[in-house]
Nucleic acid binder design. Structure first.
Length: 940
RNA sequence: GCUCAAGUGGCGGAAUUGGUAGACGCGCUGGAUUCAAAAUCCAGUUUCUUCGGAAGUGUGGGUUCGAUUCCCACCUUGAGUACCA
């Protein structure tokens, strides 16, 4: 019997599919466990060996939990809306749905051959109308809700309308647009419908607003901040400019505090929580109002240091601030205008890149200090951002380095309000050591006391209040793309109307071209059948639009994160056509117990999905306001690139050891032409279909008979020729080898390089394992009584593997299996009582070989739900211990002593030993430390 | 700049409440088997060494009988973020 992995793996993959081995039931007496992977975007390139890393880890955990008696939900699906399929459609005219379906097919084939225990009956695709129906449904729920700060949750907009009708908006404490006009109940009733709708829109959790967006002309779309890297688009690297557009926004800012607090209740990695905290950016301080001398307007600022208010020596407004034009004096107008113009010309990118140059202009206007009533000059400067806080700051040069630099540059006075601090060189920003001086009623106070008192005094005067500010901005939810969820929205007289949920889904229309229209409208503007008939409740041709019963539909589509923000709940009941998921399903599965995925989603998907979950919780749809109890970030698998070295200007390639002192160009070569020990397969390279010709005349200079390549660890990417395809690994070594090797590489969370050469280690382990069970003469397992050593090996393996899985330390269990196989081989173990439970231990890691041997041993059915072996400590009890004997903490030799020997006897025996005397060389030990069962340390 | 993570052989890495540093694997060296190669098996493989030993976990200090592990300062690398008032 040979270990024919290709045959075995196919056999069991077919078996699992046919028997629906991993189908999870929504009602079960078993305890539930939900293991989730971040679902993939099915790209055209297919999987490389880095992608399945997290899937293998979660699969091991899911399989382990089944052995532990849990009903495990382990689903998989596709985040299948996205830009690449659309880009491809623009280039080729092929419908993105076709490209996407093909790519999914490839993904599915690749995933299947790795042997994952997914319940494929629950697959979802975000681009499938039966799925995005519910994305549209949630959007409507958000539209129909507002955030009540008093109850601190989302509530129905119909309730808000009732409040407006009975008492106006004066007492409404809501998260809403800034500067909403106050109105009474009488006003509300008098307003026409359009006015009422406009007002309500300012309160809804998703709303239309004129927003400055990151417009990417090349892609014809708006990008989120996290889709822009270094000022260019993440995908494609195209330039991005600022542009004003009417866009849907999500009022995520309403949830800022709850998103922050919720982090303390979930077991996610600290670095991820830290990213989210930074992103939310809570700062506690005060809002302060400064009157402007000779004007009715006021300047509102936000400050985290109200304790330093007596140190204010100027104000700074963002150049874009709306007051700038009004308050600038005629004498200063020319200078201010020039500065505003110069700033507007500089792109966001330039402003960011150039943080050292100090620039600004004096407006000629003066604000009035709320306490001293002294005039304070008002400046503008581009270090103040229009988009953060109020776009204005009270500048305290002695306490803030940027204000300090600005003051120095423009010769503005720098009053010192800190006791015993020298500020002649730099500002003093240490809150802890602050003692306030020269500040009237704040003198002698520390930061905390002074802050409290300053806020109190400001409130008394009506010129300020304590305030908490968040950096988190509302999220723009419109995209000018084709391949995304259409909005369930039509417009009457410019006002958005929701389509009733019973008419969902509103399916994507067909278009001739996937580009924006000539008039600059999104791709859906190309559709000829994209109007809503309110009589038939269907999508009809645009030419029927009459403004009476038939209206235009929304032309934008939803962003990439829409479909991924609730998919984890949809998996619980994916085929439900009546509800997003049934009460029974959500009450049974509750929430995700373990979520594994990449840390690159820290402030995108992982924040937005928490926001939607909290909203769903407020609506009473889900039982938890956090959807994932525990989250682990898998690290990235990096490629090990290979280089050959061409002597400049020649066709001569030098082996790595010969390049010293020579002028050479390193050139990437495909890693598949590198065999073990970094040796280049020259014949293979020359025969390469793509690049072989380039090397027809090449001369390779060898060292010791071989050509050695240079190696470097880089991200896996096509352009670096270091991508390794799992298909090749599976066909050469098998899925079990791939699974084991990915885990064996190192800790799950860590970044680590892939090197195919190393896979022979785990592969020969599997062959060795096989040989424990069978040889050329067939099965050799028998009913022999296990020896003490056999039992010891088995039980220490059970203990270690169980601990490792529970700690997500999968790399160390692979080592443990190797040790077990090595020991049992040495012990010539053939006992079924040992070898049968060993298969259960290994089966989460290498399920195919485990299933095959399990059935060879005469068992019926799958090994998948066989109980995990029980650890019995009695097999590990020892009677003696090989004590390390150390001198001043350094181990010098070991000594076998009985474990029941007393401390005194150990000391005597050790001191009497001749090796001890040798070590001491005549010295008398000062002290002897004996830790029974652990160590002996002799000091002296 | 700030925040977080990580620095251990030629390489990936192990050492779970402080107690034998380098498990396991790759690679390398030697040997067996083979006409030869692959595969397989056996032995060795941190460094230095006067072969008795000695040093050693990024650097420098500290706590301790004993530190890869705890504390302080610093250096390096990676990730995220940034004129955030």
């Amino acid at each position: 019997m040979r270990y024919d992995f290709n045959k075995i793996e196919k056999k069991w993959q077919d078996y699992w599919a046919k028997n629906e081995t991993f189908k999870a039931e929504n009602n079960s007496d078993k305890p539930k466990f939900y293991v989730l992977d971040m679902f993939p975007y099915p790209s055209g390139a297919g999987l490389h060996v880095g992608h399945p890393l997290g899937y293998i880890a979660s699969d091991i955990y899911a399989r382990y939990k089944r052995h532990q008696g849990f009903n495990v939900l382990h689903p998989q699906g596709y985040d299948s809306f996205g830009l690449p399929a659309e880009q491809y459609a623009i280039q080729t005219g092929q419908h993105p749905a076709i490209t996407t379906a093909e790519n999914i097919k490839t993904y599915r084939r690749q995933l299947d051959q790795i042997g994952f225990s997914f319940d494929w009956s629950r697959e979802v695709r975000t681009s499938d109308p039966s799925y995005y129906k519910w994305t549209q449904w949630i959007f409507i729920q958000l539209f129909n809700s507002w955030y009540n700060k008093d109850s601190d949750k989302a509530e129905a907009i119909t309730e808000l309308e009732k409040i407006f009708a009975s008492e106006g908006n004066l007492n409404v404490n809501a998260v809403c647009d800034d500067a909403i006009e106050p109105f009474t109940a009488e006003d509300w009733i008098r307003f026409d419908s359009k006015k009422q709708q406009e007002l309500l829109l300012q309160y809804r959790l998703t709303y239309l607003a004129e927003t400055e967006v990151n417009w990417c002309p090349a892609l014809g779309t708006v990008l989120a901040n996290d889709e822009i890297v270094n000022g260019v688009s993440e995908r494609g690297g195209h330039p991005v400019i600022r542009k004003k557009m009417t866009q849907w926004s999500m009022r995520i800012s309403a949830y800022a505090e709850r998103l922050l607090q919720g982090l303390d209740t979930i077991d996610w990695t600290d670095s991820l929580k830290e990213s989210q905290r930074n992103w939310i950016g809570k700062s506690v301080g005060a809002a302060v109002t400064f009157n402007i001398v000779g004007h009715n307007e006021v300047i509102d600022v936000f400050t985290t240091r109200p304790d330093t208010i007596f140190g204010v020596s100027f104000m700074t407004l963002a150049p874009e601030h709306e007051l700038v034009a009004q308050i600038t004096t005629p004498e200063q107008k020319a200078e201010v205008d020039a500065y505003v113009l110069a700033t507007a010309k500089r792109s966001e990118r330039d402003r960011m890149a150039d943080v050292k140059t100090i620039s600004g202009a004096f407006t000629g206007a003066y604000a009035e200090h709320p306490f001293t009533k002294e005039p304070i000059p008002v400046w503008i400067g581009d270090y103040v951002l229009a988009g953060y806080g109020t776009g204005a700051v009270m500048s305290v040069p002695c306490g803030d380095q940027r204000d300090y630099d600005f003051a120095k540059h423009f010769n503005i006075p720098i009053p010192n309000i800190f006791e015993g601090i020298d500020i002649s060189e730099e500002a003093f920003a240490d809150k802890e050591k602050t003692v306030i001086a020269n500040s009237d009623f704040l003198n002698g106070m520390n930061y905390k006391k002074a802050t409290k008192r300053a806020i109190y005094e400001l409130e008394q005067m009506g010129q300020g209040e304590g305030k908490t500010n968040y950096r988190l901005r509302d999220a723009v939810f419109s995209r000018q793309r084709y391949w995304g969820e259409p909005f369930p929205v039509y417009y009457i007289d410019g006002m958005p109307q929701m389509i009733a949920t019973e008419h969902l889904p509103i399916e994507l229309p067909e278009v001739e071209k996937y580009l924006p229209t000539e008039t600059g409208e999104p791709p859906l503007g190309n559709a000829t059948k994209w109007a809503w008939c309110t009589e038939t409740n269907t999508v009809v041709n645009n030419d029927k639009i009459d403004g009476k019963a038939i209206f235009p539909l929304e032309l934008n589509t939803m962003p990439g994160w829409a479909g991924s923000s609730q998919y984890f709940n949809r998996y619980m009941d994916p085929q439900n056509d009546k509800e997003i998921f049934s009460k029974e399903a959500i009450n049974y599965w509750q929430q995700v117990d373990l979520y594994i995925g990449g840390s690159e989603h820290a402030t995108g998907h992982l924040l937005y999905s928490r926001f939607w979950q909290k909203f769903m919780f407020d609506l009473g749809l889900v039982p938890h306001d956090e959807y994932a109890k525990k989250l682990i970030n898998q690290g990235m698998i990096l490629g090990t690139s290979a280089f050959i070295y061409r002597e400049e200007g020649t066709q001569t390639y030098l082996s790595l050891g010969l390049i010293e002192g020579k002028k050479v160009q390193p050139i990437h070569v495909k890693v598949k032409y590198v065999i073990a020990s970094d040796e280049l397969d020259i014949e293979g390279l020359k025969a390469d279909a793509e690049f072989g010709e380039d090397y027809a005349d090449a001369k390779f200079v060898l060292e010791n008979g071989v050509y050695k390549v240079g190696r470097d660890v880089e991200k896996m990417s096509k352009s670096k020729y270091n991508v390794v395809n799992p298909d090749d690994i599976v066909s050469d070594y098998g899925a079990d080898s791939l699974r084991l090797y990915e885990m064996f590489l190192g800790p799950l969370e860590q970044y680590k390089p892939w090197n195919t050469a190393g896979i022979t280690g785990v592969h020969s382990f599997l062959k060795k394992l096989w040989k424990l069970y069978a040889d050329d003469n067939g099965l050799k397992v028998n009913d022999a009584e296990p020896t003490k050593d056999n039992l010891k090996t088995l039980h220490k393996t059970i203990k270690k593997v169980q601990e490792d899985i529970e700690n997500f330390s999968f790399n160390t269990s692979v080592s443990t299996f190797m040790i077990a196989a090595n020991e049992l081989t040495a012990q010539k173990c053939t006992s079924k009582a040992i070898l049968e439970p060993l298969l259960v231990l290994i089966s989460p890691y290498a399920p195919h070989i485990a299933e095959e041997l399990w059935s060879q041993l005469g068992n019926n059915g799958s090994i998948a739900t066989v109980p995990f072996p029980e650890f019995d400590a009695s097999h590990l009890v020892e009677s003696s211990k090989n004590y390390p004997i150390s001198f001043n903490g350094k181990m010098r030799f070991t000594l076998e002593l009985p474990l029941d020997m007393s401390k005194e006897d150990i000391e005597k025996t050790v001191l009497a030993n001749e090796k001890t005397q040798e070590q001491l060389a005549g010295r008398t030990p000062k002290k002897v430390i004996v830790v029974p069962g652990k160590i002996v340390n002799i000091v002296g």
